[in-house]
Structure formats: structure tokens, C-alpha cells
């Protein structure tokens, strides 16, 4: 790898770190400043975490424990410090050290966030990657055939279905498919099933099959449309005519010359989609009761559990940034014209 590429990557990673700080600072600010606009005090914020029977004393002590009396920038600084230096946390009966990277403790159930994130990451990772492979293959195949058979019944049917696919809500399709395939037919695993890949790859795939398909359906619809449009454009390019003029078989022309050109822009979107999904497929995880990052984020948001929200936000932003970088690097691999720049 040439030195310029390495400096490029380093520059991008540095920018990514800055971005992560900005994102986390904004999340932090929203969490504290928004309530402030409607008149919240440290105590009213703390009432969210004290349970139903708290006395005014408890509320004050809780606000103290959670650091709500400190200025926001200092609270943020404490949080940032935890990432690099770790933090100490009192359980009442003792103090536990949370080693770096310490993303804090849940305001609500006292669990440290970082191990929770690591615990949930494989679920989200499995879901996103499996679905991504399915939708990429499915969407590209359907889109390609549609483009090559433009105007035929197949094309119209596929595009009609994909329009529906994009607009169907996943909690509807998810529950419906669970009802049909798990509860009526017994073909797939019930909601909430998950087996770690390393425990049993077969079970892992079996458990995730339905979530994969459901999530992939949603995306493959979009990818089919993109592929179709891309292929229609690419197959009209001069270099396709050249390929044919060489006497190449039509299949070679379509796959090696057509798809290769059409897929490049799709790669960008694919990278970003996967990056976003790695931060948690909220609706799919909810519909299938998968304990992934998305579900964790939702729990955090509905319970005002800032450290959880911060944790997922940081992780999700990290994935998006990395996905962006990977896409850009891949782009250079795929499109030699980009490399020159």
C-alpha cells in the first residue's frame, strides 16, 4: 500500500475521531439542554431515575450521584475521561472500577454500558451481515433481470413488488412472517431465537433466517430498483457495445462489463446501509425480539438512559464512519479512475 494511501487513511480516521466527539457532544447536549428549555432542573431530571417512591432527599442524592449538578461540559468531560482512563462506580456496597474504554453505567440498572454493547454487537452484526448478503444477491439479481427484460411481465411484477417491499413496515412483515412460518408452518425459529455463531453455525443461521429474509426484503426492493436503473444506463454505454463487438458471450457482457459498471454506485449505498445497520436494526430487532444494539438503543431512549444512548450512538457513528472509509477505499479498488485522485 503506497504511503499516500496510508496517510489518507490516517487523515480520515482522525477526522472520524473528531466526528465521534461531535456526535457524542451533540447527543449529550440534546439530552440535557432540551429538558432545560422546558424548565427542567437537576432534580426533575433525577426524578426519572428514582423510582416511584422517592423522597426529595433521594432525588437530590440521585441527582448528585449522576452528576446532574455539574455543568454540562463537565459531565461530558467526565464521560469522555471514562473512555480513556476508565471510571469508578459505587454500587452502594462497594466501588467497582470500570476499565477504559468505559462508556459509563446505565442510569437505570447500573450495568456498565461497554460490556453490554459488546454483548449485543454479535447479534446486530449477524443480522446485518446475513441480511446484507441476501439483499445484495437478491436485489442485484432481480434488478439485473428486470433491466435486461425491461418492460416484460417479470420486470413489471418485480418492480411492483419492490415498490410494495419498500413501503411495507417491517414490524408488520416481521410479525406476519413469524405467524406464518414459525407458528403455523413451524419452518423457522420462533421470535427471540438467537444462537451465537461459534456455538452452532447451523442453529445460528436457522434462528436468523426469518429476520434476515424480512430485513433483506425491505432492502432488496431498493437494490433491485437501483440495479435496474444502473444496468439500464450501463448497458447503453459504449463499452458494452465494444464488449459485444469482441464477440463475448452475452452473459459475460452482462456480468463482467454491465454489472461491474452498474454496481459501483450501489457499492456506496451498500456500504452506508450496512454501516447504519451495524448501529442496530431497530425495527427488525424489535419485531423479532433480538437483543441487538437497536433494541438496546430503544431501551435507552424510552428509559431516558443516557449512557446507553450515548454508547449506541458512538458505536453506530463509528460504524458509519468506518463504512464510509471502507466504501471510499473500495471505490478506489473498484474504479481505477478514483485511485488517481
Amino acid at each position: 500500500m503506497p504511503a499516500t494511501v496510508i496517510t489518507y487513511i490516517i487523515r480520515r480516521l482522525f477526522a472520524a475521531v473528531v466526528l465521534l466527539f461531535v456526535v457524542s457532544a451533540v447527543t449529550f447536549a440534546i439530552f440535557f439542554l432540551m429538558p432545560k428549555l422546558v424548565g427542567a432542573t437537576p432534580e426533575t431530571l433525577a426524578t426519572r431515575y428514582v423510582g416511584r417512591a422517592a423522597t426529595a432527599d433521594t432525588v437530590r442524592e440521585t441527582a448528585q450521584r449522576l452528576g446532574f449538578y455539574d455543568p454540562i461540559y463537565q459531565q461530558y468531560w467526565e464521560w469522555v475521561k471514562g473512555i480513556f482512563a476508565g471510571a469508578d462506580y459505587s454500587y452502594g456496597s462497594g466501588v467497582e472500577h470500570c476499565p477504559a474504554p468505559c462508556l459509563g453505567y446505565s442510569f437505570r440498572n447500573h450495568q456498565p454500558v461497554w460490556p453490554d454493547l459488546l454483548d449485543r454487537l454479535p447479534v446486530t452484526l449477524s443480522l446485518a451481515i446475513g441480511a446484507a448478503i441476501l439483499w445484495l444477491l437478491g436485489g442485484v439479481a432481480v434488478g439485473t433481470i428486470s433491466a435486461l427484460r425491461k418492460g416484460t411481465i417479470f420486470d413489471r411484477a418485480a418492480m411492483g413488488v419492490s415498490l410494495a417491499g419498500v413501503s411495507l413496515p417491517i414490524f408488520f412483515t416481521g410479525l406476519l412472517s413469524l405467524s406464518i412460518f414459525s407458528y403455523n408452518l413451524g419452518w423457522t425459529a420462533v421470535g427471540g431465537s438467537y444462537t451465537p455463531f461459534l456455538d452452532n453455525p447451523g442453529e445460528w443461521a436457522y434462528d436468523l433466517l426469518l429476520p434476515w429474509i424480512t430485513l433483506a426484503l425491505l432492502f432488496s426492493a431498493q437494490y433491485a430498483r437501483l440495479t435496474r436503473a444502473g444496468m439500464l444506463e450501463t448497458m447503453n454505454e459504449d463499452f458494452i457495445r465494444t464488449a459485444r463487438a469482441k464477440g463475448l458471450r452475452e452473459r459475460t457482457v452482462v456480468v463482467r462489463h454491465g454489472l461491474r459498471g452498474a454496481l459501483t454506485p450501489i457499492l456506496t449505498i451498500f456500504g452506508l446501509d450496512v454501516g447504519l445497520l451495524l448501529g442496530g436494526a431497530i425495527l427488525t430487532e424489535s419485531a423479532f425480539s433480538l437483543q441487538g444494539l437497536g433494541k438496546y438503543a430503544i431501551d435507552g431512549i424510552t428509559n431516558y438512559d443516557l449512557p446507553k444512548v450515548m454508547g449506541v450512538t458512538i458505536l453506530a457513528a463509528f460504524f458509519v464512519v468506518i463504512a464510509n472509509l471502507v466504501v471510499d477505499l473500495l471505490y478506489a479498488v473498484v474504479d481505477p479512475r478514483v485511485r488517481a485522485k
Binding site: Y183, V190, G191, F288, K295
Partner: peptide
């Protein structure tokens, strides 16, 4: 953290 609608379906079906 199980989907509430899914819980209903599974209880009705005897899977839960």
C-alpha cells in the same frame, strides 16, 4: 424485551 405482539401470538399458539 420480547416483542409484545409476538408474545401474544406465541401464547395463543402455545409456543410460550
Amino acid at each position: 424485551n420480547v416483542n409484545a405482539d409476538d408474545i401474544d401470538n406465541r401464547v395463543i399458539n402455545g409456543d410460550l
